[in-house]
Design a binder for these strands. Structure first.
Length: 282
DNA sequence: TACTACGAGATATCCTCAGT
DNA sequence: ACTGAGGATATCTCGTAGTA
């Protein structure tokens, strides 16, 4: 994965997504899909660009324009528009935010077929924003999962498998994208499982990364959240959630190993803390 | 045949002006 | 103040038509 400097964008952990990125993006780029409700043209332009990146993965600005245009002069002017939306613009000495400034899009490598040109793709925050705001069809969502499999390996990397095992429960990722179920104490007594404790530890684990986090760590944080959230019983089904969940992990040992590393970390975190208070007793 | 000049495709910056 | 639209310009690559 490219470094922060190479990515040309800075983003923080999930809390930063909830408290900063999501509100900022909604203010500047829209709270709802332009397809559902007509808003400013700017929102539509940005959302169309995000859709292109969601469906196609890494592209140069020229490549983005080429996805829906064939005439060279049209491509040329469209390409400039996309660039402007990506990097923002200067007017009267003031910089207005582009998609890179907010952190929804990052640079990922260069296209060197011709003169070296930046390749752009969605960041994890950008993926979440798309899930939250842009109404991607199931088909497009599948394409996004395929194109971003290496960015979010534990979820998008096994999307088909997840679909086959848990079906529409993959939509829980949209719950995260909408900023819910991250620090809710309400989940503490839903089941006997320590969901609340795991979610709390998840926030603790990455608490120093509010300002900045590297992509692999954020992908882990999102994925830990996702698999922990899957343990929360859904209202509509009566099926035994934890049984299904166990099956999901048992059929994918790499996934299981990865997830339980997190569980073990959480256990030792809490064990140590309780040890401290016990020590005060004797 | 080897070489070069040129056009087209691509990428990148900066600037102006109009509309709301 | 912000956005849309687009002009001007520079640079780089590559294929090829035309030339030495």
């Amino acid at each position: 994965m490219p470094s922060v400097k190479e990515q040309g964008a800075v983003y923080g952990n999930l809390l930063a997504y909830k408290q900063y990125t999501r509100p900022s993006a909604q203010r500047v780029f829209g709270q709802y899909s332009f397809r559902n409700k007509k808003g400013p043209k700017h929102h539509e332009n940005v959302q169309r660009l995000l859709e292109i990146l969601a469906i196609n993965g890494k592209l140069t600005t020229w490549g983005m324009a080429k996805t829906h245009l064939s005439d060279t002069s049209n491509i040329r002017s469209q390409e400039k528009d996309y660039r402007r939306l990506l990097i923002g613009r200067m007017a009267r000495g003031k910089h207005t935010m582009g998609l890179l400034d907010i952190g929804l899009v990052v640079k990922d490598g260069k296209n060197i077929q011709k003169a070296p040109a930046d390749l752009y793709r969605l960041s994890l925050h950008g993926i979440l924003y798309c899930l939250d705001v842009i109404n991607l069809s199931e088909k497009d969502l599948e394409k996004m999962a395929e194109k971003y499999a290496d960015v979010l390996p534990q979820i998008f990397g096994r999307w088909k498998y997840l679909k086959s095992m848990i079906g529409s429960d993959t939509d829980r990722l949209k719950t995260l994208a909408s900023g819910m179920f991250m620090d809710n104490i309400q989940i503490s007594n839903i089941t006997a499982l320590p969901i609340y404790e795991l979610m709390t530890y998840l926030n603790v684990k990455y608490q120093n990364n509010f300002e900045q986090i590297n992509e692999e760590d954020l992908a882990d944080q999102i994925s830990y959240w996702f698999y922990t959230n899957l343990l929360i019983p859904s209202k509509r089904s009566n099926t035994n959630e934890s049984k299904q969940w166990k099956k999901l992990l048992d059929n994918d040992l790499a996934l299981k190993k990865w997830y339980y590393k997190f569980v073990d970390e959480a256990i030792s975190f809490y064990t140590n803390r309780f040890k401290q208070i016990k020590n005060l007793k004797s």
